[in-house]
Design a protein around this nucleic acid. Structure first.
Lengths: 316, 316
DNA sequence: CGGCCATTCGATCATATGCTCAACTGTTGG
DNA sequence: CCAACAGTTGAGCATATGATCGAATGGCCG
């Protein structure tokens, strides 16, 4: 008898769910139809949900992205995660994620109360800055996590801080240092001088850090851009380097290496584990291992990527 | 550009739909996530529905029934329609529909204001009456649409009116006449006498008519039960009879025949087209044609059947 | 370049929904 | 037969939702 009641209860739940979700009736109407109180109708509808009698199917590429983002967020305990549809025409395109990063910057910078935004390297970050909606926020601060003087002494192409400051009127703190110093001692000396210490102090209070993630292979961006030599790159790879964030190389477990270029690097080191919102932005099959390692090592606590990359990370 | 906006709008709609239905967020939360006003979030969710980006799937036998009922209701413009799951173990079982009929009677009789319920023939109707919850409603009236004296002069097995009156304390009006008179003249004479005219008058004011539907073939219930002879049955079939309601035979278009037993029948004729709620209750492959004809001829404006029968009716 | 039309937007409000809590119903164990 | 109890029920309320309407935006034509 209990079983029969159970069954008829589920039948009613299914009926209510059908009437609610498919026929589009209100719970009041359903209550009248099924001869129960509205409260009971509500219970039936929610039972229908709870028992998974009804399922929702979203027939749209976005659906998969939302799903992947939710899984990444869960798996790596992320504060923020966005997955954009992969553009089949250009799988490596940063356009999609740049758009989302710009959106993130927009919404952060829109705040009237002063915020501090720290920027790392990466094409996605650079492209994001270009898409930020200009807005007047003189009380915000934009700080660079990475030296913007390249090997030849000129200001780097990656002057994202300056560009973003242009668009917002915010105070900005570029890091007037070469990417690499010639020795560990020299690095240690430099980062203690006043202007640099100031940048470090501001960066430490950043409300948002947006960083690119680079893979450490023959096509590593830090090498392609001429910041590290072929030999330096290979040495780091021998040491187990699999990826880098603001130049800081880390291994497949996301542990920062204590050797090679990391000893001479002027960039502000990542906070480990990431406490302030630190969003990595990266796409591409080549970067999957680097991204996964950064997530596992908690070098970042947020991620913006595309569908294909997200899938690859989850399938590792 | 328009196409791109369109696309991103649908993307957002899908996103909103996902967050709403699948992730279970409120529209307020979604509005914050997508950086839009709550009103816009609501519009996105409803756009998602309107564009059918999201679909609902109800994984339950009931779902198909609800669907069939909705289609029958639409197709035949019915005031009421219920489809119960077919019992694979007993395809002809009236148990399911009897339950629903009883439910219908229950809810009708529950009313405090006096109601008049008229009952026709049929096993389903009979079984329904047995399942009605006893309730004290002395001001209701139960009236028979069909003579309850069988050929041999005894009260018929189908004394549904009496049984229902027992359970409700309602006044009841059986029809103290044989099913068939010996001639048209005699029938016309009998239906004019006072007690019968009274029954007719009450029946005319019925709030609900619940009738069985019989097929007119070798196994026609009216013949099996001995109300009409084999010859009478065959004669009606020759005239095109395909089904009967309270004994009134009709053809495949649902038109009442003006010949044969219909001329000598004492039953109260159906209202055509049915205006007051007139619910047919019937299941079985053999009855499909009869039910469809009754629906098309508007001899009934409501139907209670099972899944298999409903499907067959719609597929004709 | 300006004005017009067609959307779109967000404030506001009526309605629908979900939840809490106290009362109730049927059940089980004395 | 009664009492304790677990599970349900519906009233009432706080919140969420959906519709309306005036304002604003943007595109298009003169």
């Amino acid at each position: 008898m209990a079983a029969e009641n159970e069954k008829s209860r589920l039948d009613d739940a299914a009926r209510a769910g059908w009437l609610y979700f498919i026929a589009g009736h209100t719970q009041d109407e359903i209550a009248k139809m099924l001869q129960v109180s509205r409260a009971s109708a509500q219970r039936l509808v929610s039972l229908c949900l709870a028992e998974r009698l009804i399922t929702f199917r979203l027939e749209h590429p976005i659906a998969a992205c939302m799903e992947l983002a939710a899984r990444l967020k869960e798996r790596f305990d992320l504060a923020h995660c966005e997955v954009v549809p992969a553009d089949p025409a250009a799988p490596q395109a940063t356009a999609g994620i740049a758009e989302r990063c710009a959106n993130l910057l927009d919404s952060t910078l829109r705040s009237e109360t002063p915020v501090i935004v720290a920027l790392g390297t990466g094409r996605a970050v650079r492209a994001a800055v270009e898409r930020v909606t200009p807005i007047d926020r003189p009380n915000h601060q934009i700080v660079s996590l990475v030296g913007n003087i390249s090997a030849d002494g000129s200001a780097s192409f990656y002057d994202t801080v300056g560009r973003l400051a242009d668009r917002t009127g915010a105070r900005h703190y570029p890091m007037p240092l070469p990417f690499l110093m010639s020795s560990e001692d020299e690095r240690n000396k430099m980062v203690r001088i006043e202007p640099i210490a100031k940048v470090k102090a501001v960066a430490a209070k950043a409300d948002l850090r947006l960083v690119g993630i680079g893979q450490m292979d023959q096509k590593a961006q830090v090498h392609v851009d001429g910041f590290v030599t072929r030999d330096e790159l290979f040495e780091m790879m021998r040491q187990g380097a699999i990826g880098e964030i603001t130049g800081w190389a880390y291994d497949s477990k996301g542990r920062l290496l204590k050797a090679g270029t990391n000893r001479r690097l002027t960039s502000i080191p990542p906070e480990v584990p990431a406490k302030t919102t630190t969003i990595g932005a990266a796409v591409g099959a080549a970067k999957v291992a680097a991204i996964a390692a950064a997530l596992n090592g908690r070098l970042i606590n947020g991620l913006i990527t595309d569908e294909a990359t997200a899938r690859a990370i989850l399938e590792r």
